[in-house]
Amino acid sequence: MANGTFSRTVVVTNPQGVHARPADMFVKLASQYESKIEVIKDGERVDGKSILAMLTLAAVEGTTLKLEGTGPDAEAAVAALAELVLRDFDENEPLTNK
């Protein structure tokens, strides 16, 4: 299996942005993969397996993030992480009750 670099661009759509809980979920998921995961916002690049670094991005609703994976399982990792962001970190369901 080739060590490739895969990337995908997603927009944060959950109203509260990537706050502590979503960042926690993101990092937990990213850490399940062997590949190096990086998240890029406006040219700022941080380690996707570090919750502190993710929080410093201050990715609020509407922020465009580029997810980049490098390593043996990069393609699967990027796909799963993009999916998580697009699912609004599973936060959208309680919102319909509001």
Binding site: A20, R21, A23, D24, V27, K28, D47, K49, S50, I51, L52, A53
Partner: peptide, 16 residues
């Protein structure tokens, strides 16, 4: 409990 889960993640942050 999720709040503490984030705490734990920060504490064990590999970059830190």
């Amino acid at each position: 409990g999720a709040v503490f889960s984030a705490h734990l993640q920060m504490l064990r942050d590999p970059a830190l």
